[in-house]
Design a protein around this nucleic acid. Structure first.
Lengths: 232, 232
DNA sequence: TTCACAATTTTGTTGCAACAAAACTGCAGC
DNA sequence: GCTGCAGTTTTGTTGCAACAAAATTGTGAA
């Protein structure tokens, strides 16, 4: 008679629902920059794009909106957010706290295999930067970060971080031209890899925090320039 | 022709939708312990309880589930989560990071009025504890914490913290009997109030971290006892 | 009692139509 | 050019029915 839900090893795999698929697809489009900041989304348009009915499309939009990846610009208007200075600062502070925590935990679990994987990802970033394939560099950059965060063994934390990346993701695509004047984040990543190899949590955290702050500076500058341009 | 969504002061107030109302109501029930860990929820039952159709009920459940406040115990079974040791640890680590950050930011903005408000909330907690009205004590305890966190001026951070509280909320209601053997969190709260008055961010953070860790210890003990009881 | 298994009931998902409300368009009037 | 405003179109929300699939119940055998 006793109910006994979710034991420790609860790995039931539900068949993916249409709404989930729509959600994943939209998430990827947002990260990859298909939908740029300011882009307006409608239920019916998404439904048509993804070839599903309005219900799953609406589910996906609502879910993204509740995560902050989309915002309401009006009662019936959902857009990809354009981050202002305050929002940018808030996200960055939160990222520092959460990604910092993930780094410290990750350092305790890193193996030589993980170190190799990171080096390999970094090579992909480097060559993408060299060939000015910025979108691809951004993508591998994300993989690099999350390869580390996943080592923390804290899956819920990783998804919280993911939702933060979803918020800044679109804005990153506005940094393209000046993006690789100096190789974006390369040095920080190198230090991070070393720190992970040495299982030095504090150093890993510091390197990644540095990386986050560097990105923040660039975004803030771009944001200020945009605001100045608008009011002028 | 240029779109110009979400300016700095974007305070458009949309009339509340049924789905949002359902979401709020369920959130409150979860925090207040109406739905206990293990409680199974169905779309139609919720719809009937809240007197709406299935669509808003389903919206609310899905949203709560995507926040982690509800979990899938099977493909068609949504329950209030029963936290195991690992989940408890993960949430606590995240809480320390996020609530710690909120404290540090809050300390920079505290006013004498805020200090008075906190003292008043603490009085409510005290008398509720004295009269063994635990659910009420828990409620005011939440208000105390969030009164501080809101001072951070970081609204998105506050909602992230809220979703974490939603996850542990139900479990707290299992601590009732031994809950006030020693006054729960009172000393830490007193220190926190002083720290806020002095705008001492580090102390405020330390006091609240202490509070979080104390709650963690109790929950962990209860969780271990429960697991031992189950397998025996 | 315990287990297996089939019949039955309950459940979530999906698609869709109706409705009210918001967004948009175009046109005067300044 | 810009502003204000009506008419028109588009939009999100809601309720609901159908369907497939999962959960539950009941039955019988070991």
């Amino acid at each position: 008679m006793a109910e006994n839900p979710n034991e420790s090893s609860d790995l039931e795999r539900a068949p993916e629902k249409l709404g989930d698929a729509a959600y994943r697809e939209m998430k990827e489009r947002i990260i990859r920059g298909v939908y740029r900041p300011g882009h307006k989304l409608t239920v019916r348009a998404i439904a048509q794009d993804l070839d599903v009915s309005t219900t799953p499309a609406r589910d996906a939009i609502n879910r993204l909106a509740s995560e902050g990846a989309l915002v309401y610009a009006g009662p019936k208007t959902v857009v990809v957010p354009v981050l202002d200075a305050a929002a940018l600062r808030e996200i960055t502070l939160t990222r520092l706290a959460l990604e910092g925590l993930a780094c410290e935990q990750a350092a305790q679990h890193g193996t030589p295999d993980n170190v190799e994987e990171l080096k390999s990802l970094q090579r992909l970033i480097n060559s993408a930067l060299d060939e000015r394939r910025y979108a691809e560099a951004l993508w591998h950059n994300k993989e690099f970060h999350f390869a580390i965060y996943r080592l923390s063994g804290l899956p819920q934390l990783v998804s919280m971080i993911e939702s933060l990346w979803l918020r800044i993701g679109p804005s990153l695509h506005n940094l393209y031209p000046e993006f690789a004047e100096e190789k974006y984040g390369v040095r920080n990543h190198e230090i991070a890899v070393e720190a992970l190899a040495e299982r030095d949590g504090a150093s890993l955290r510091a390197a990644m925090e540095n990386d986050i702050r560097d990105g923040y500076r660039r975004l803030k500058r771009a944001s200020l320039e945009r605001e100045a341009g608008q009011s002028a």
